[in-house]
Simulated scan of single mutants.
Amino acid sequence: MNPRSAFQNRAAVLVTAVFCCLLWGSAYPAIKIGYGWLEMAADDTASQMLFAGIRFFGSGVILLTLAAILGKPLWHFSARQWGQLALLGLLQTTLQYVFFYIGLAHTTGVKAAIMVSTGTFFSVLLSHFIYRNDKLSTGRSLGCLIGFTGVVLINLGERALDLDFTLLGEGFITIAALVLAVALIYGKRLSQTVDPMVMTAQQLTMGGLVLILIGVGGQGAVTGVTVASGALLLYLMMLSAAAFALWSFLLKHNPVGQVVPFQFLIPIFGAGLSALFLGETILEWKNLAALVLVCGGIWLVTRPATRF
Results as ranks from 00 to 15, higher is better:
193 T>L: 04
193 T>V: 13
194 V>C: 07
195 D>M: 09
196 P>F: 07
197 M>R: 12
198 V>S: 01
199 M>G: 05
199 M>Y: 01
199 M>I: 05
200 T>D: 03
200 T>H: 02
200 T>N: 14
201 A>D: 11
201 A>H: 11
203 Q>T: 05
204 L>F: 11
205 T>L: 13
205 T>S: 15
206 M>C: 10
206 M>P: 05
206 M>N: 02
206 M>F: 15
207 G>C: 02
207 G>F: 01
207 G>V: 02
208 G>R: 05
208 G>Q: 06
208 G>V: 00
209 L>Y: 11
209 L>F: 15
210 V>Q: 04
210 V>H: 12
211 L>T: 01
211 L>V: 00
211 L>D: 01
211 L>Q: 01
212 I>L: 11
212 I>Q: 06
212 I>V: 15
213 L>K: 06
214 I>Q: 12
214 I>Y: 15
215 G>V: 02
215 G>T: 04
215 G>Q: 06
216 V>Y: 08
216 V>N: 03
217 G>Q: 10
217 G>H: 10
218 G>E: 08
219 Q>K: 15
220 G>K: 00
220 G>V: 01
220 G>H: 00
222 V>N: 05
222 V>E: 06
223 T>Y: 11
224 G>F: 02
225 V>M: 14
225 V>P: 04
226 T>K: 13
226 T>N: 09
226 T>Y: 03
226 T>A: 05
227 V>P: 08
227 V>K: 12
228 A>I: 07
228 A>N: 12
229 S>L: 01
229 S>G: 05
230 G>I: 03
230 G>W: 04
230 G>Q: 11
232 L>H: 00
233 L>A: 08
233 L>S: 07
234 L>R: 09
235 Y>Q: 04
235 Y>L: 01
236 L>E: 00
236 L>I: 11
236 L>F: 04
237 M>W: 04
237 M>A: 01
237 M>G: 03
238 M>G: 15
238 M>W: 08
239 L>R: 00
239 L>H: 04
240 S>K: 00
240 S>N: 15
240 S>M: 08
240 S>R: 04
241 A>W: 05
242 A>M: 10
243 A>D: 09
243 A>Q: 14
244 F>V: 13
244 F>R: 09
244 F>L: 14
244 F>Q: 11
245 A>V: 07
245 A>K: 09
245 A>T: 15
245 A>Q: 12
246 L>F: 07
246 L>Y: 06
246 L>P: 08
247 W>C: 06
247 W>M: 12
247 W>Q: 12
247 W>I: 03
247 W>S: 08
248 S>L: 14
248 S>W: 13
249 F>I: 10
250 L>Q: 05
250 L>S: 09
250 L>D: 07
250 L>I: 06
250 L>E: 05
251 L>S: 04
251 L>Q: 10
252 K>F: 07
252 K>Q: 13
253 H>F: 14
254 N>A: 03
254 N>Q: 13
254 N>E: 14
254 N>R: 15
255 P>T: 11
257 G>M: 09
258 Q>S: 14
258 Q>W: 12
259 V>Q: 05
260 V>S: 14
261 P>R: 04
261 P>Q: 10
262 F>L: 02
263 Q>S: 15
263 Q>Y: 13
